[in-house]
């Protein structure tokens, strides 16, 4: 049992070590307030406070005498749900960051700082220096060069203000059409940017790639139409009932790089040496032909026949542009 989920035990320990100095600095804070500050359920705060109040150091007698333990105002805690530490031992300050924690924050900082209206280079440099000084050990150098999409500023403002956005969109079937959406969230995955929004004409949630948008503009006075109880699923791409399944073979080494399409742990069966066979759900063949043509030597569509044929024809058409002198 001691070995079970060591990460989660570490997280719990980190929580206790973070909570004690906060409680000392915020004498009499309510459970609700502390929970909101740490972004955890109230019960988690209560459990932690009870554990802290019973903990301490062995002390000179090595018997955990009352004076060697934390103590709280129990009446206040039990009757008013407020936390006041009345006796403290051993810790009073926030812990330092580990080298890895600092490295993660510094790299994340560089990434978000490249986005419009976030921060300038000076702020990033200043924070990097602070984090480095606050870390126990030199952070591993992890850096990110991020490129921002020019459309991002306007779209982000529209999300914050809840303004309707209108733009020309090239959809996955290569058709351009005007879309009118209620923007909900801007998300990114490394270099790619997405807008998740309520599509007013389709009356459904949709995900749009920023780099397929053109002529983005706001329609400020348009009232919102979406249902109030709408909730954004965590995953950007949602499978749909109309999706169809195709069988593909993938070079085993390339599997992790296809996690966006196949999920983290796809079901596979062995194929020829070094390759596995698996199934992929797709909305239409337009996306599949691009996926396969961009992974020569790593991914082969096996069946159904029309899917294999679509990839074949796409690559043939691509080659033809080099072979036919009239297209040059």
């Amino acid at each position: 049992m001691a070995d079970a989920q060591p990460l989660r035990v570490q997280d719990r320990l980190a929580f206790l070590l973070a909570l004690v100095p906060y409680l000392l600095d915020n004498d009499g804070v309510s459970v609700a307030q502390a929970a909101a500050h740490f972004g955890v359920p109230e019960q988690r705060i209560r459990d932690a406070v009870e554990l802290i109040a019973m903990s301490g150091v062995p002390g000179e007698t090595k018997a955990y005498q009352p004076n060697d333990l934390f103590d709280i105002d129990w009446d206040r805690f039990e009757q008013r749900d407020e936390i006041a530490i009345t006796h403290q031992v051993a810790i009073d300050d926030s812990p330092r960051f580990s080298a890895r924690e600092a490295a993660a924050l510094i790299a994340g900082l560089q990434y978000v700082a490249a986005l419009p209206a976030n921060a300038d280079r000076e702020t990033v440099a200043r924070l990097t220096a602070k984090l480095t000084r606050s870390a126990n050990g030199a952070p591993a150098a992890v850096a990110v060069a991020a490129g921002a999409d020019t459309r991002l500023g306007l779209i982000r403002e529209a999300v914050a203000a809840g303004t309707v956005l209108v733009f020309d969109y090239l959809n996955g079937r290569d058709e351009r059409e005007e879309r009118s959406v209620e923007p909900l969230r801007v998300e990114s995955v490394d270099e790619s940017w997405y807008l998740r929004a309520w599509d007013r004409s389709r009356r459904a949630l949709r995900t749009f790639r920023l780099d397929r948008m053109r002529d983005v503009r706001t329609a400020p006075d348009t009232p919102a139409e979406r249902p109030e109880d709408i909730e954004l699923p965590e995953r950007i791409f949602q499978p749909s009932k109309q999706d169809r399944s195709v069988t593909i073979e993938v070079a085993a080494a390339a599997l992790p790089l296809l996690a966006d399409f196949l999920g983290e742990r796809p079901q596979t069966e062995p194929a020829r040496r070094g390759w596995v066979r698996t199934r992929l759900r797709i909305a239409h063949l337009h996306g599949l032909k691009r996926l396969a043509a961009g992974r020569a030597g790593l991914l082969v569509v096996v069946e159904p026949e029309d899917a294999r044929r679509a990839v074949h024809d796409w690559a043939v058409a691509g080659l033809a542009r080099y072979e036919d002198p009239s297209t040059r």
């Binding site: 570490q10 980190a14 973070a18 100095p21 906060y22 972004g39 993660a104 982000r156 990114s188 490394d190």
Partner: peptide, 30 residues
């Protein structure tokens, strides 16, 4: 690095400083 980030956030919270504005509708992901 998600575990590290989560714990780093806890340590930041520990300082008791409230964040300036809640970051609604913006979710960059590395």
């Amino acid at each position: 690095l998600s575990g590290e980030s989560r714990r780093a956030l806890l340590k930041l919270r520990s300082l008791g400083i409230e964040s300036e504005e809640p970051l609604i509708g913006f979710a960059p992901r590395l």
